[in-house]
């Protein structure tokens, strides 16, 4: 049995390296994105093999699924006229030309890899890390899943900053582009039915992941990614929100997560003298409130990123003309 798992793990590791190389070296961007998504799915499997199902869920949902969708949307914007004609392999030309200027990033990557390798090799062969301290303090954290306890309680400010980074990314996209809110042409009955059928299930799964995160793998980012996927599916099916919802309501929903975090941080700072240090009796409720707000904001932010532009700008221009 150990031989079998050893063979499986070796194959998995080699496939990951091969897929990563192919995704980087492939001259066809469409193929590179498909390879990247395949890489993300195998990476999720690797996290499962490392007994980290929380990271595996996040990798599969965000790393493979939503990032793949965002890359595809970006590719469609890069070549609006030059559609991908067929599913055949294009001739691999220009490979030698591309190589001539790539030595600089190659050197940078080599330096980073050497540094990382040195750090990994200089680590002690076995270290418990902080898992014993997390286990010792789990009772007062408000969650029985140690990953949720770390993300929302012990290192809550990391999660706060991550959510703010997501919001900043959306602001960057909005400052670069505007998005049309015109309803797209009828997408066909299959995609329409699929979106109508799956959206309620996605919302249910997101709520389940959010709730189960307190004591099992799950949580705000995974639930938010599922909500975002529902948004992506609806946008693909041609659905567009009403223009009236795009001004203030959308912005309120987007900042709900970060704002709730900041309010709780300020309140705990004033009352306990330490940012995001919850009173143990209310920790569970506070974590649930924070995670719910974060889930909604993450889901809407991811869907808005897929829309790929400020939905209000276009509207404003139209009113002026």
């Amino acid at each position: 049995m150990t031989l079998l798992t050893w063979v499986f793990d070796s194959l998995l590791g080699l496939s990951l390296l091969w897929l990563a190389w192919r995704a980087l070296a492939c001259p066809d961007l469409f193929k590179a994105i498909v390879l990247f998504v395949a890489f993300g799915l195998l990476m999720a499997l690797a996290w499962v093999r490392l007994a980290a199902p929380d990271v595996a869920l996040a990798e599969a949902a965000i790393g493979a699924g939503l990032t793949g969708a965002l890359l595809m949307a970006a590719l469609a914007k890069l070549h609006p006229t030059e559609a991908h004609d067929d599913f055949t392999v294009p001739p691999e030309k220009n490979v030698t030309k591309v190589w001539s200027w790539q030595w600089l990033p190659a050197v940078a990557i080599l330096l980073v890899t050497t540094g990382l390798g040195y750090v990994v090799l200089s680590l002690p062969p076995y270290a418990a890390g902080l898992s014993t301290e997390v286990a010792a303090n789990l009772a007062i954290s408000g969650a029985s899943n140690p990953v949720t306890a770390v993300l929302l309680n012990f290192r809550g400010y990391d999660t706060l900053l991550e959510i703010v980074v997501l919001l900043l990314a959306l602001l960057g996209v909005w400052s670069l582009n505007s998005a049309s809110l015109d309803r797209k042409a009828a997408p066909g009955i299959v995609l329409d039915t699929l979106a109508r059928l799956l959206t309620p299930i996605f919302i249910l799964v997101a709520a389940y992941l959010l709730w189960v995160g307190a004591h099992a793998p799950g949580g705000a980012f995974q639930a938010g990614a599922v909500l975002g996927a529902a948004g992506v599916l609806l946008l693909l099916a041609g659905w567009r929100p009403r223009a009236g919802l795009m001004a203030l309501p959308l912005r309120l929903v987007l900042v709900t997560g970060p704002a709730t975090f900041v309010i709780v941080a300020v309140l705990t700072l004033l009352m306990k003298g330490q940012m995001l240090e919850y009173p143990p009796t209310q920790a569970g409720v506070l974590i649930l409130i924070l995670e719910t707000a974060a889930t909604v904001s993450i889901g809407v932010t991811l869907a808005a990123l897929f829309l790929g532009g400020d939905p209000r700008k276009n509207n404003r221009n139209k009113n002026q003309t």
Partner: peptide
């Protein structure tokens, strides 16, 4: 879920390929 998604996506890819004249 895989049945529904697989059947729908296969249909979408096939109709997309037909539209592009493959």
């Amino acid at each position: 879920l895989v049945l529904i998604a697989g059947a729908s996506v296969a249909h979408l890819i096939a109709s997309g390929a037909l539209q592009r004249g493959i």
